[in-house]
Design a protein around this nucleic acid. Structure first.
Lengths: 265, 265
DNA sequence: CGCGAGCTTGATGCCGATCAATGCATGTGG
DNA sequence: CCACATGCATTGATCGGCATCAAGCTCGCG
């Protein structure tokens, strides 16, 4: 609630518009939001599923869950039973290695899927934590598997989603392995920008749901470095930052940061 | 279906003829190496498939290909039609970003699968290059999908393989994002060691199929750093290195390097 | 109004990159 | 068989980017 409220004060129009109808009493009558009506269908498992098959798919999504900010959707080691689609809100996922090092492996927003790593071993490999009050559709894997046999597009949808996660990971590996700190941050912001755009929000004006620390963890940098980079981008007139609110003034310039040739300035 | 056609016309005669001889040590007549007899079944798509279903699965693997060292199995942008299972040999996969930076995203050995990223967009997202003369089974995705509908264990096998790749990627992200250079190299060697062990080879004594440069690219380090680290490990009596030949003298110590507490020495 | 979590900014140091040179294997042609 | 070239690996010297340490600062909240 609090998060939604906060968003509301700062950016109702922008953030809630497309969701507002489907969800107005967010989650109150979850039963009524069918896949057929869901505006996220394109990015979700149901992508490209003909209308006549949607009914069968809806059997999968029988459970909705509301996760409050800071709470966990699942934890590393939990039994894997379902994938989760984000209907509203956003999450981070983290993993810890044997030495206790923790790292953010991704930030996820509306329409994106969580929990795919759990498929590998039957237990979740990481932890998903809500960055704001969020709701998700739980989709039991057993049902996806079963219904997927009858509905090929669902099958493909799952493959697509898994493969996209792999491609995304490779992008992050590239980022972590061969980009400088400022290139990483620029890439991160450009990526966020694109994802907001695709969802119909402003691509230049958005709110960072995560802390600087979390951004740093994701990008393999320390908080101080992230903070300094924000300042530097600001000085250069590329960005305006006020707390969590970001305004990309010069998207082209931000993109250019990614080119190694810009090292000179 | 275009996939099937292409593989068929281009492939059958050419591929199989050269394979048959080359394979003599493993299984003299390539035709005869069925999934049922394949010693890689456990790690492959066919994992956990009951014997009576194996025949159907074998329809998938009708094309074998031999790739000579340095040659490409597929290139970024190529049309995706098949996944590839490595029967013998090893590969590296690389991606390049828009600025031309190239990075190794993985090293793959016997029994492991390649090309999964291509599922996301219908085109391969990266390039796979043989590190030694290798052969692979080509498995057309269209067939996997079709037969998967009848054979649940195949379906699961695919999901498993995709999910494992995701988990592996997360591990690499952790490595790149929060480990020191020497921790990365140690982790890399320990990982190789385990994989050789699982395949029945010596876990302490093996040959690096890749150059220092490629290791560096994978680990986000420069050649010089990799080389220096090898030397350092050698000085400490943890490793013996002669060119590409590695002998892990003290696996425990190598594991301990991974613990941040060892920073002191 | 004061506390604390999260953010910013500065000073300093270290790890790994970079630059540069040498060594060492493999291969090729005379 | 040697001379030479080429690709890969090692080692040293130096440099720079980011981490680290250390204060302040801002804002939301009790």
């Amino acid at each position: 609630m609090s998060a939604v409220a906060r968003v509301g004060t700062q950016g109702r129009a922008a953030f809630l518009s497309e969701v507002s109808e489907a969800e107005s009493p967010v989650g109150s009558r979850s039963r009524e939001i069918t896949c057929a009506k869901c505006n996220l269908r394109e990015t979700c498992l149901a992508a490209n599923t003909p209308l006549e098959d949607l009914k069968r798919i809806e059997r999968i999504v029988y459970a909705r869950r509301r996760i409050m900010r800071g709470e966990r959707l699942f934890s590393a080691g939990d039994n894997f039973t379902s994938l989760y689609a984000i209907r509203t809100g956003s999450f981070k996922t983290t993993i810890v290695d044997c030495e206790g090092r923790e790292q953010v492996t991704g930030f996820f927003m509306t329409g994106e899927l969580l929990g795919m790593g759990g498929l590998a071993s039957g237990r979740f490999e990481g932890t998903a934590i809500a960055l704001e009050d969020s709701d998700v559709c739980a989709m039991p894997y057993a049902l996806i598997e079963e219904i997927g046999r009858e509905v090929p597009s669902l099958q493909r949808g799952l493959h697509l989603v898994l493969a996209r996660e792999i491609v995304r990971n490779h992008g992050v590996m590239l980022l972590l392995g061969s980009m400088s700190a400022q290139e990483r941050l620029a890439a991160f912001l450009v990526n966020l920008s694109k994802r907001y755009l695709r969802r119909g929000y402003s691509s230049s004006n958005f709110i960072l749901r995560m802390t600087r620390d979390e951004i740093g963890s994701y990008l393999g940098l320390k908080v101080e470095t992230v903070s300094r980079l924000f300042s530097r981008f600001h000085e250069r007139g590329v960005l305006e930052v006020r707390q969590k609110e970001v305004r990309i003034v010069d998207l082209m310039a931000l993109g250019r940061v990614l080119a190694p040739s810009s090292a000179g300035e």
